[in-house]
Design a protein around this nucleic acid. Structure first.
Lengths: 187, 187
DNA sequence: TCAAAATAGTGATGTAGATCACATTCGCTC
DNA sequence: GAGCGAATGTGATCTACATCACTATTTTGA
């Protein structure tokens, strides 16, 4: 199977020969999911992290007051899992749901640690990737601190153009931290 | 100089012999700062990340409306820098200010990359540390999404007990994303 | 050591967005 | 392609917190 886009993704941070890539690829398994299937459900043990080859997924949860919150959208080339649960070998807080038919590459915790030990470059890849994810998430935190809802909406539109078309409005609203009524009034 | 607490900190994720630690230590320099000195000022190039040996620092910035926001408190055993600027070799958005006399260990970008290349365990250390930082910051984002100000105040008190005594109220308020008037009314 | 500045508390009023209630339209399933 | 539940839009009202205005206290530095 041709997974040039995955190799491209890795090469954003490290450079690889074909042989190295093929070897790395053996640590991953492949999975297809249908729209409205769950990749992870809350309270399950989380043993994998996923790289999205195609499709669209969201991670989210329902808080103690019954309100839904969206943590992350994942489109092509994104990684997704419940990180807290994955790194701490514990149970998921979040649900991860397919909004469209999707294909993902799966990497177990054990394989990931082994991959980092076996292939030095991949240790570096995950380190750099983690640093970038931190910065990206920090930017999102900043928008929560500095912007009002209307501005956050515009920022989301900039970051993922076309997402509005693909995602139910109530999920967009839950990502932005407003009610669907408020979001509706922005449009 | 005895830096047992730094070795302890590293050993949260990796195990080291005395020799290994001493070698790693040579990549860092030492710096003392006085209260109200800046470690980083916005618009400066950021070439170092810092591990706090003692004292108390905050990173923050002033937004386009002139409102101040606090990103992070750093006490003993915390790392602090403007990560966006540090990883992207660019200029700081944040100021990092000493609220108390402080001592830090300094690691330049070049030395950090070299350290990761020279000492495999340190590549792993920074990878794991970055993953944990991501999760910790995600928890903070969640409190912004799910809790009201009063609850966020209680959560901050839990995470850093005693901080209220050490930090001006307007800085606490800016960390929590409320005005100092609102914070004052919680107490 | 003393004046100026920064910090902190509190009341009155304004406002973004939540909540509730209901109408309309869209998209499945049989 | 009829029928039913989910998704969406919109008005009326409510509320947490911001903003403004003023006073009291503490810190600082000349």
């Amino acid at each position: 199977m041709n997974e040039a886009s995955f190799q491209h993704h890795l090469e954003k941070y490290i450079s690889l020969t074909e042989q190295e890539f093929d070897f790395i690829r053996t640590y991953f398994t492949h999975k297809k999911l249908k729209r409205s299937e769950y990749l992870i459900q809350s309270d399950q043990l989380v043993n994998h992290t996923y790289w999205v080859k195609s499709g669209l997924l969201v991670s989210g949860f329902t808080d103690s007051k019954g309100k839904e919150h969206i943590i992350q959208f994942a489109i092509e080339n994104c990684w997704i899992t419940d990180q807290q649960a994955f790194y701490n070998r514990s149970k998921a807080t979040f649900n991860i749901l397919c909004l469209e038919d999707s294909e993902v590459l799966c990497l177990s915790y054990q394989k990931r640690e082994k991959l980092c030990a076996d292939v030095y470059k991949m240790n570096t890849f995950f380190r750099k990737k983690a640093n970038d994810s931190f910065v990206k998430q920090q930017r999102r935190l900043l928008t929560y601190m500095t912007s009002e809802a209307k501005e956050r909406y515009n920022l989301l539109m900039q970051e993922y153009p076309g997402l509005v078309q693909r995602v139910p409005k109530k999920i967009l609203a839950a990502y932005m931290g407003v009610t669907r009524e408020t979001l509706s009034r922005f449009r």
